[in-house]
Simulated assay, not measured.
Amino acid sequence: MLPADHLSRSTVAFPCLKTLSMLNMGMSDKDLDHLLAASPVLETLVLASPVRRFHLRSQSLRSVLVFLVGDFAVVDAPLLERLIFMKPLLNARAARPVTVKIASTTNLHVLGYMEPMFHKLQIDGNIIQPDTVASPSTMVPAVRTLALKVNFCVLEELKMVASLLRCFPNLSTLHIQSVPCDLSETAAAGEHHAQFWREVGPVQCVRSSVKRIVFHKFHGHQNEFEFLKFVARDNANALESLLLVSPKEKLLSEDEVNEMIDKLGCPRFTAWTSKVLQLSPEVENDWSPMKACKLTVSDPFR
């Protein structure tokens, strides 16, 4: 391949290239545009390079994994099925929010990990806010698998979670990874957050389409349970399984989880979990960016 700074000034072409992985390559957004335009059959892209802005235009790309360091926009990618975001190795929560714009994504089936305080989602010109009202212009109906990273101790994040879930009315699988809470805040915030989940309105995908919820790094904190109680109260009619995956440093037994549920004093929630609840310890796996991008892998977040 020619150096990146020659792409825009050359007639370089990659007519047979189907998979491209770029790691730690300095490249401007203009050079990246030229590279994609020169790859007419490219299907899979892994971009782990410091691109400050990426406007995705490709008539062939089906799967994209991006280590986000700047704003991202799907401008014209009609075949895109899978969009996966990884955070770069920096303290992203101290950085400014990254804008993720999604448009022309009628085939987008897989999206994540979205982080409410790190990603600012924009759908067809509408920025999703904590109080965003669901409408056709704020929804992506094609998405079937969604992954979120959430700090359940932070109320603003929970408000965004409720809004984000309303954007994907036909979800089938929901992955949630719990970000470590500040335990000193949990007790004080727990009652307040419980009130929020009691007052939040119905969410269409939770009520009618989600079949599987995988709760990664589940610690058994009160605020994590409050979210699950909301799911139970919202009549998750299609739900077949709720898998709680506890981290290695805090393995939870079935008896411990059942004891926590009993202490919540919510008979309806207890009856609901008895039907769908499963437990699993966190295990080592062979996950990799390239494997996650493979369209033959049905769920890249497992």
Rank of each mutant, 00 (worst) to 15 (best):
residue 245 V to C: 01
residue 160 M to Y: 06
residue 70 G to K: 07
residue 44 T to V: 15
residue 63 S to Y: 03
residue 70 G to W: 06
residue 223 N to Q: 10
residue 72 F to P: 05
residue 186 T to R: 09
residue 185 E to Y: 12
residue 140 V to C: 11
residue 105 T to Q: 00
residue 169 P to F: 08
residue 130 P to D: 08
residue 48 A to N: 15
residue 282 E to V: 00
residue 269 F to L: 07
residue 135 S to Y: 02
residue 191 E to W: 04
residue 295 L to D: 05
residue 217 K to A: 12
residue 289 P to Y: 11
residue 298 S to W: 05
residue 117 M to L: 11
residue 238 A to M: 06
residue 138 T to S: 15
residue 182 D to Y: 07
residue 127 I to S: 04
residue 7 L to I: 05
residue 4 A to D: 05
residue 237 N to M: 13
residue 3 P to N: 09
residue 15 P to H: 09
residue 61 L to W: 12
residue 258 N to C: 12
residue 116 P to R: 07
residue 294 K to H: 04
residue 4 A to E: 08
residue 155 L to C: 03
residue 98 V to T: 15
residue 273 T to A: 08
residue 215 F to T: 01
residue 216 H to D: 11
residue 207 R to E: 14
residue 254 E to C: 00
residue 35 L to S: 01
residue 34 H to G: 02
residue 148 L to P: 04
residue 55 H to W: 08
residue 53 R to F: 07
residue 235 N to M: 12
residue 255 D to G: 04
residue 174 L to R: 05
residue 275 K to T: 09
residue 194 A to F: 06
residue 168 F to A: 06
residue 71 D to T: 03
residue 261 I to R: 11
residue 156 E to I: 03
residue 203 V to R: 06
residue 225 F to V: 01
residue 184 S to L: 04
residue 90 L to R: 14
residue 227 F to G: 01
residue 62 R to K: 14
residue 109 H to R: 15
residue 172 S to H: 15
residue 285 N to D: 15
residue 68 L to G: 01
residue 192 H to D: 12
residue 79 L to V: 05
residue 275 K to F: 01
residue 241 S to P: 08
residue 129 Q to L: 13
residue 117 M to N: 11
residue 99 T to A: 06
residue 193 H to W: 05
residue 216 H to I: 01
residue 168 F to Q: 01
residue 111 L to E: 11
residue 133 V to C: 01
residue 134 A to N: 11
residue 232 A to P: 10
residue 66 V to P: 03
residue 42 L to N: 12
residue 221 H to T: 05
residue 21 S to G: 15
residue 71 D to M: 06
residue 116 P to G: 13
residue 94 A to P: 00
residue 33 D to Q: 15
residue 33 D to L: 12
residue 246 S to E: 08
residue 188 A to W: 03
residue 275 K to A: 12
residue 291 K to Q: 11
residue 94 A to N: 07
residue 7 L to K: 00
residue 228 L to H: 07
residue 127 I to G: 00
residue 20 L to Y: 06
residue 256 E to C: 06
residue 150 V to W: 02
residue 118 F to C: 13
residue 254 E to D: 11
residue 159 K to F: 07
residue 93 R to K: 11
residue 196 F to E: 04
residue 269 F to M: 02
residue 162 A to R: 06
residue 21 S to N: 07
residue 284 E to I: 02
residue 35 L to D: 15
residue 144 R to C: 03
residue 102 I to T: 03
residue 212 R to C: 14
residue 101 K to I: 06
residue 218 F to T: 07
residue 104 S to N: 13
residue 143 V to L: 03
residue 196 F to M: 08
residue 220 G to L: 10
residue 37 A to H: 12
residue 8 S to P: 00
residue 67 F to A: 09
residue 155 L to R: 13
residue 78 P to W: 14
residue 119 H to G: 10
residue 47 L to I: 08
residue 243 L to D: 01
